[in-house]
């Protein structure tokens, strides 16, 4: 069974009066516990696809099936309830939270909204979530702006997994982090995937990161799929022009070689 099946998705915008296709006839599937990466240059439609899949914006054409049901058919309260299974982690963990929020409130919201725990039980759940992502439960009382960038992204992940989703969209979720922190966050994501069988839609412009964590990759160019396949195979031997350009542009360290 696939977690997410997107077919013939299309989204048009108007730029300077002229229509342009941000996403054009895009189809892909994600299996449980699988990481599918979306790669491509800026303006290739990666983030638009993420927002379409999350129903933050509505497509002009196409179909989105989530956990075997037509996801575009639900709306209102039914859609809000469905959202528990489909979560997101943003690029900038500071912009992704209400600037006035505390860690506890950020994690309390999904539990309260989806009725996952009573008011009395929630502090215990929040502590467990923080431990799950490798943070000290005492952090709950802190304001979001007081903790470090890496801690914030762990809180974002804790919030995303609070409702036990089957799919998490990671929109450049490690791009803004320091390299040392990035490695730890990627390890955490892989660990969660293995234990809870979460599928990831992993959006990144960095092929090195994609190669490290993704099973399959879809390379986009100007809203269309240029090529797709096994992540390592595609990156080792790209066929499309944009795939070749992306690989060639990735900085590499030639270590221990003359």
């Amino acid at each position: 069974m696939t977690v997410l099946a997107v077919s013939n998705l299309a989204k048009r915008y108007h730029r300077g009066g002229k229509p342009f296709a941000a996403v054009d006839d895009v189809s892909f599937k994600i299996n449980p516990a699988e990481t599918l990466a979306l790669a491509g240059p800026s303006g290739s439609g990666k983030s638009t696809i993420a927002r379409l899949v999350l129903r933050l914006i509505e497509p002009d054409a196409g179909r989105i099936d989530f956990e075997g049901a037509d996801f575009l058919a639900v709306s209102g309260a039914a859609l809000r309830a469905r959202r528990a299974r489909l979560q997101m982690v943003f690029q900038d963990p500071l912009a992704a939270f209400n600037p006035r929020a505390t860690v506890a409130r950020v994690l309390d919201d999904p539990l309260r909204i989806h009725g996952l725990a009573s008011r009395a039980e929630r502090p215990r759940h929040i502590a467990a979530l923080l431990e799950r992502v490798g943070l000290d439960p005492a952090l709950a009382a802190r304001a979001i702006h007081e903790i470090s960038g890496g801690q914030r992204q762990r809180v974002a992940i804790a919030r995303a997994i609070a409702t036990r989703p089957s799919l998490v969209v990671l929109d450049e979720a490690v791009s803004a982090l320091d390299v040392s922190v990035r490695g730890q966050i990627l390890e955490l994501l892989l660990d969660l995937q293995r234990q809870e069988r979460i599928a990831y839609l992993f959006i990144s412009h960095d092929l090195g990161v994609i190669r490290a964590v993704a099973h399959r990759v879809v390379i986009l160019d100007a809203g269309r799929i240029a090529e797709s396949g096994d992540a390592r195979a595609v990156i080792a031997n790209p066929q499309s022009a944009i795939g070749k350009a992306l690989v060639a542009a990735t900085p590499r360290l030639t270590r221990d070689r003359p």
Binding site: L56, R83, M88, A95, F97, N98, P99, T163
Partner: peptide, 22 residues
């Protein structure tokens, strides 16, 4: 248009709660 409003929608928050609380 900020990310945290999108984030509130993603966790299923009611639009009125988003408007008046976030």
């Amino acid at each position: 248009e900020r990310d945290y409003v999108a984030g509130a929608r993603v966790i299923g928050m009611h639009p009125l709660e988003i408007a008046f609380r976030e």
